Amino acid sequence: MNVAPFTPFLTRCIEAAREIIALLDSGDSALYIKHTQGAGGDVSIGADLECQRIFAKHLLPLAHIDSEESGFIPSPHSTDDIIILDPLDGSDNFLSHIPYYGASVALCNRDRICKEAVVIHFCTQRLIARSGGRIFALSLGDFHRDSISLDSHTFTCANTPKCGIFEKAYSNPHIASLFFESGLKFRSLGASALSIALAHKVSFMLFAGSIREYDSKAGLFLCEGLHINHSRDFLLISKDKQIFDTIMQLLTQGKD
Rank of each mutant, 00 (worst) to 15 (best):
C13A: 07
I14W: 00
I14N: 05
E15Y: 11
A16S: 08
A16E: 06
A16L: 08
A17N: 08
R18I: 11
R18H: 04
R18Y: 12
I21D: 11
I21Q: 15
I21T: 15
A22K: 13
L23S: 11
D25P: 12
S26D: 13
G27H: 04
G27W: 03
S29K: 15
A30M: 13
L31K: 10
Y32W: 01
I33E: 11
H35P: 10
T36I: 14
Q37P: 14
G38F: 13
A39I: 04
A39V: 13
G40W: 15
G40N: 12
G40K: 06
D42V: 15
D42I: 13
V43I: 13
S44Q: 14
S44E: 11
S44M: 14
I45Q: 01
I45S: 12
G46S: 03
A47F: 04
A47T: 02
D48N: 09
L49N: 03
E50N: 05
C51P: 08
Q52S: 04
Q52G: 06
R53K: 06
I54S: 05
F55K: 00
F55H: 03
A56R: 05
A56N: 06
A56I: 12
K57C: 05
K57R: 09
H58A: 03
H58M: 04
L59V: 02
L59I: 06
L59G: 05
L59S: 09
P61K: 02
H64M: 09
H64P: 10
D66P: 11
S67C: 06
G71E: 01
G71I: 07
F72P: 01
F72C: 03
I73P: 08
I73M: 02
P74I: 05
S78Y: 08
S78D: 11
S78V: 08
S78P: 07
D80Y: 02
D81T: 07
I82L: 04
I82D: 01
L85T: 03
L85P: 12
L85A: 04
D86W: 09
D86L: 00
P87N: 06
L88K: 04
L88T: 11
D89S: 00
S91A: 09
S91E: 09
D92R: 10
S96I: 07
I98A: 14
I98F: 04
I98E: 14
P99T: 13
P99D: 12
G102S: 13
A103L: 11
A103T: 10
S104N: 12
V105C: 13
A106S: 08
C108D: 05
N109I: 12
R112L: 06
R112P: 07
R112T: 09
R112N: 10
